[in-house]
């Protein structure tokens, strides 16, 4: 791969396209990016896209329709490496915020009644990993530009992106922030994978978990702590599920009393 530019495709399923926008917004580096990789498909950024074999596919968005699913399966089939980018692709995104409740059909009915759908094949929002093998994840809502570029750099050299296996709190302490949890603010930094440089807490805003649950997230302990701090079960679950999606739902499911 080192001698020949890797063929790259950047795709979006159901989501806000914010991750693709972040890539386009790499103004200072975009030339280097196009110089380091053969970007064959990036519908949001250019016309003249070629859909064939890819060395790497970056896919944002959740699988929310049958069309998403067939598109994803097609991308997977022709890509050596598939990287999920953004919260929707890695966790299911805010649209899977009710994943804990399971009853997809009832929920649809509750919102839309008997309205006829333009998109008749909508389904429970799922991260890519629920359907295909995902080789790497760049989480976050949106993704961090620096992390994306670092990941591309590594991939160009034939290596995989580094996954952050520690929580936001580590970076939060690097930045010498006051702990918001200790001040009684419901911050879910301890449950959330780092890599964002604790950007929210740096601005005194509690972490909402947009990068998804960190490996070994101790949901039970944080849940108990927030209950002690007088937050209601519903508030805690809602906060955790805001971005945690299907991945957070899996963790909450094992928790006694958290399920509504």
């Amino acid at each position: 791969m080192a001698n020949q530019l890797p063929r790259v495709g950047i795709y979006g399923l159901t989501g806000c396209a914010g991750d693709q926008l972040t890539i386009i917004n790499c103004e200072d580096e975009i030339l280097a990016l196009f110089g380091a990789a053969d970007i064959r498909s990036f519908v949001m950024a250019k016309s003249d896209n070629t859909e064939d074999e890819m060395d790497v596919a970056f896919v944002e968005g959740s699988v929310s329709t049958e069309e998403d699913l067939s598109m994803l399966k097609d991308i997977r089939k022709r890509s050596k490496i598939l990287i999920a980018i953004g919260g929707c692709a890695s966790c299911g995104g805010p649209q899977s915020g009710r994943a804990l409740e399971k009853n997809w059909k009832d929920r649809i009915k509750q919102v839309y009644g008997n309205t006829k759908f333009e998109i008749p094949d909508a389904k429970e929002h799922q991260p890519l990993s629920a359907h295909v093998k995902v080789d790497g994840v760049i989480p976050g809502c949106p993704i961090d530009k620096g992390e994306f570029l670092r990941a591309v750099s590594r991939i160009v050299n034939g290596d995989m992106p580094i996954a952050y296996k520690y929580p936001v709190c580590v970076e939060c302490k690097y930045n010498e922030n006051e702990c918001l949890l200790l001040k009684g603010i419901p911050c879910i930094g301890p449950l959330t994978a780092a890599g964002c440089d604790s950007v929210c807490v740096n601005h005194n805003i509690p972490c909402v978990g947009c990068r998804g649950p960190v490996i070994e997230a101790n949901v039970a302990s944080e849940y108990k702590l927030l209950l002690e701090k007088k937050f209601s079960k519903e508030d805690i679950v809602n906060r955790a599920m805001m971005f945690g999606g299907v991945k957070m739902a899996e963790l909450l499911e094992n928790l006694k009393g958290a399920k509504k």
Binding site: Y166, P167, C169, V170, C172, K173, Y174, C179, G189, P190, L191, E216, N218, A220, S221, E222
Partner: peptide, 13 residues
């Protein structure tokens, strides 16, 4: 261990 959030803060500070 059950209680620890494994957040690393104790070591950082």
């Amino acid at each position: 261990g059950e209680k620890c959030l494994a957040c690393g803060s104790c070591s950082m500070v």
